[in-house]
Each structure stands twice: as C-alpha cells, then as structure tokens.
Design a protein around this nucleic acid. Sequence first.
DNA 1: CTGAAAGCGCTTACAG
DNA 2: CTGAAAGCGCTTACAG
Lengths: 327, 327
Amino acid sequence: MKTTIADIAKIAEVAKSTVSRYLNGGSVSNATRKKLDQVIQETGYSPNTFAQSLKAKKTNMIGAIVPRLDSFSASQSVTSLDEELRAHGYQLLIVNTSQDLSREIEAIYDLARQKISGIILFATQITEAHMTAFEQIKIPVILLGQQHKEVHSMIYDDYSAGYEIGKYVLQQGHREIAYLGVTEQDIAVGVKRKQGFQEAVRQKQDVHVDFYESGFKMSDAVVSASSILDKDKPSIIVCATDNIALGVMKAAYMRGIHIPEQLSVTGFGGYDITEVIHPSLTTVKYGYSTAGKLAAKNIMRLVSDKEVEPLTVMGCDLLIRESVDKI
Amino acid sequence: MKTTIADIAKIAEVAKSTVSRYLNGGSVSNATRKKLDQVIQETGYSPNTFAQSLKAKKTNMIGAIVPRLDSFSASQSVTSLDEELRAHGYQLLIVNTSQDLSREIEAIYDLARQKISGIILFATQITEAHMTAFEQIKIPVILLGQQHKEVHSMIYDDYSAGYEIGKYVLQQGHREIAYLGVTEQDIAVGVKRKQGFQEAVRQKQDVHVDFYESGFKMSDAVVSASSILDKDKPSIIVCATDNIALGVMKAAYMRGIHIPEQLSVTGFGGYDITEVIHPSLTTVKYGYSTAGKLAAKNIMRLVSDKEVEPLTVMGCDLLIRESVDKI
DNA sequence: CTGAAAGCGCTTACAG
DNA sequence: CTGAAAGCGCTTACAG
C-alpha cells in the first residue's frame, strides 16, 4: 500500500498542505518538523513524481536525442552529459533514433509531451521538420555536433581539424593523396573537414588529391578502400573518421599492404581504440567527454533562463602517431 | 497555450469522458468520431502523460540500469533492448551508474518512484542491498549477465565459453599458458569463464597454466601483460575479455613481440573491433544484441503477468581467427 | 506557522 | 453511445 501525502498528514495530525510545505522546504514549526521527520521516516514515504509534475508543469528531466548509442563519440558524450546533469539534480532521458531522421522528429515532440525541460540533439542533419518542431515545442534545445543559426549550437572545429591534418600530411611529404570522405549532407563531417583539408592543400604546389566517398561503417570503408587501392596508388588515405580509417587499415592488411611503410592512413575522432591498435593511428582528437559536460552546463543555464552563447566552438588536437610515414 | 481534453471537449461539443473514450479506443458513434478526429487534428492535441500516469498508476516505461554506456557489450545490448521495447510501445529509461554499486541501489528505488513498469539490471555483482531493494519495490526485475536464484536472470554460458576456448587452445598445441582473468567478485566473467577453462585443462596432460588478474580496462591489461611477459614465457595469453586481449596485444607490440608467431592471444566477447584489427582476434562471440532483444521480450511478459523462465542461458560461439598459432 | 479549498489533466465506474 | 461526477496525489494562493 503506497503512502500518500494524505496518509502522512493524517498520521502526523496536520494538513496536507503543511506536509507539502515541509517537503518543499517551506517554513514549518520545529514541533511539526520533528513529527513529520519521524512519520516520513517510518512510512518510507516518497512523493509521486507524476502528481508533482502535473501540478508543477515541469520536470527535472533533460532529453538527449542520439542517432546511435553504439559509437565511441556518442557513448562518451552521453556518459559525461549524464554525469554532469545528475550531479546537478537533473535526470537524463536518452532517446535512440537508430539514425532515422523521422524518428528524431517524433522524439522531439515526444519529449515535449513528457514535459522535459530541455533537449540536447546529437545532430547529423537539420531539416525543415526539425526547425518546425523546435518552434512548436517551445523548449530549450541545444544542437551538438552541427550548427544552425536559429538554435543554440555546439560544434567541433572541423574546419581547423581538417586543415591541421592536411598541413601535417603535406609536411610529411605526401603528394599523392586519396581523401575518403562521407556524404555532404553531414555538414560537419562531410563538408567542413574536407574544406579545411582542401585549404591546406591549396597552399602547396604539386599535390594531387582524389576525393572519394564512403559510408560511416567500417565495413563500408573496407569496400571503398579496396576499390581505391585497386585502381590507384596513393601514398596516403586521409579518412573523414577513425572508423573509416580502421576499415582502410583492414583493407590494406587484407591485401598485404604494410602500414605505414607502403600506405599511410589518418583519421578524425581520437577513439580510444586507435591508440591500442598497431600501428597506432594518427588522427585528430575530439573532446567528446568535455563536450558532453559543456552541453550539460549549457542546457541547465537555458532551462534556468540564463544566457548562453548561440555558438560554442570546441577545439581539437592533432595526435601524431605511427600510421603516417615520412616520405 | 496547451490544449487539454477539456478544450477539445468544448470545441467538439461533447463531454470530456467521451473524448477520453475516443482516445483510448472505446466505442464512439461515427458522427462524434469524425468530429473528434478533426478537432484533434486541428488543435494538435497531445495528452499529458503525467495526468495519464497519475490515474493509471503505471507507465509504459522500462528502466535499464547500466554500469557504463561506453562499452561494446552495454551499447549493443541497450540499443537492441531499446528498439524491441519501442516497437511494442514501451519507452526505455536508461540509468548509467558509472560502475558505482551504491548508485545502482539508488537507481532501483528511483525508478520505482517513477512508476516504471519493469527493470532490467545489467548486473555485475548482486549484493544484499540489491535483494532488499527488489523486495521492497515490487516491480518485475530481470538480471542480465549474472544470476541469482530469487530473481529472473539471463546469463551467457560463460562456463562453456571458457571450456571451448580452453579446448581449442590445447588443440593448437599450447602447453605453457598464462590466463589473464578478472576479479572473482564478478561471477560470470571472473569465475565461470575461468572454471570452464580449467575443466578443459584438467582433461589434458602436461599443461602448465599460470593465473593472473587484471582490471577491466585496456590500460590495466597493458600493465598486467607487461609484467607477465617480463618474467614468463607463455606461448599464449588467454584473456577473460576482448578488452584485456586488446591490451595484451598492445603490450606485445610495444616490446616487438609478434602475434601470433611469438605469442598467441585469445579473448571473450566478440567485439566488432576484434575482427578489424590485425591479426584478428580469436575469441568467443556473445550475442549482445540478441540478449537485449530477449530481455525486452521477457520484461514485457513479466509486466503483463505472464510466465518467464527464471533462468535463461544464452549460448556463445567460438570465433577462430588469426591470433592463435598452431605449435 | 497552519489549514481548507481549488485545481493540474486525465480516467473510470455509474447512470441514462 | 454519451455525460456528470469523483478521484488520482500533489501544489498553491488565500485566509487566519
């Protein structure tokens, strides 16, 4: 039998409103406080969150909409987001959309219906439907990983990351380059990284770059890399993500090509695994944990009606390791 | 302005109860159905979930308590759990405990307070406190990954997995073996896998096995492996998890030891990455996705008061790849 | 400091 | 098939 505020009011011989006040830190006389302390102790009372939310018309919940959980970047960011939020009394509700854009839209409305206080969207593409949803729900939203001028956004400095990788690769003497990117639908990963890379190339003479496109999965990359290696002889394959780089390395091994002696490889991301493999992967480290934590701080500010910069740009660090040869 | 059931009742000129019935699939005349269809359409009405739950005294939410999100096994299982649940109209609420056992207990009570319908606990250890919590909350619980006689449990056949690995390793001619395990606090990973392995060894003559213990992290394994290789010359290191195996491989590379020519390595788990690295890792594949899906089915049955086997044992498959040499 | 009362948005018998 | 009414458990002005 669940005890309610009415039960404990009766036992303690006070009014329900007094109990409520006590519970919410309002002023109560010492005598009643004592009594209430005890009664609540004994009954093991705990408030019904629905009734609370129904009245208060809000919750302490923050929603995170994530395209997938089983990726290094997502799990890192979500974990730190969750920890930071919980440390401040918020609860994180994670919605996995399995990379289905329409589910993303559904999730936005769904979360709003559940009176979530704020939303963090791990964004890949921002469509019209997204914007419509944001306008309708009137709940603070933060975009993580992509930017849009009308929404609070947190992005990595993908352009610089691409530029840094490009500069380093050229410095190491590479002139025959294959760039294995992803769809341009993804502005951050597909466009910005490539643009930064291209800028580095532009500043150098006699460089030849072929651009290719792959899916995000390792297995996609294995296929793409194989077809590149079939017809081309680049000294390096610059990959738009660590996952793709891993796939390329696999493809190389499968044909007996040694890395980095016969083929150099780079990635973007800085996944843990890239340090452990052999040779370790030269890549750009993205601060996924830091981003999650910062996203938490920002959404909490927005929820409390405090100011937040419309755009936060997070830096990245070039990680020079073993997968690139000097030629 | 949020529209409520009262608003739409007024607009459609019917009673609130009629609207509610309409919403919940009760019998309504064709005329009123038409009208309601339209009004709800126009107003974009969506029900307040708190009010619903307050009355109904339950939710369509299932809670998952997870020690960490950033592991292959957890993210795989959670993803499929989530998908299966959503396909049946349930929502998954994920609670990350950051491997803190006391947070796990808190989470159990927390979820109960939120009137969650069922709980899936990604278990590592089951303590007294857990059992007390389970009894108090009176909500269906499923343990995933560990077993307890008083709770519905789903486990992998760790004993057989250990046995299979052992049999294979011996078959390949290995006689000087280092077994790198984990704490025995973890019955499944620390005890069962080792016991299965030992059983295989017992059936063979002249085998020498040294048992060591490592933490779960790759970096822990690098250290443990280094100290093993310093003083010992096993022909193989059998590791209790893929993560540990990855760490061992790293340690070997760092000292210029070739795998598998100079040292063989095996793991448990079947993480995706183990197929991509070079040499690919011989390991036992655990069906994390299948497990998640099955856990979803089981908890839904329990929530609907249907019978579920107290113990579900899930099989594993030996994956023979490149990291073990025949000697 | 304390209590009575209204109300949050919905559902559920109970009549009609 | 439809409606009036009570109630889920809590909070919030408003008096006292």
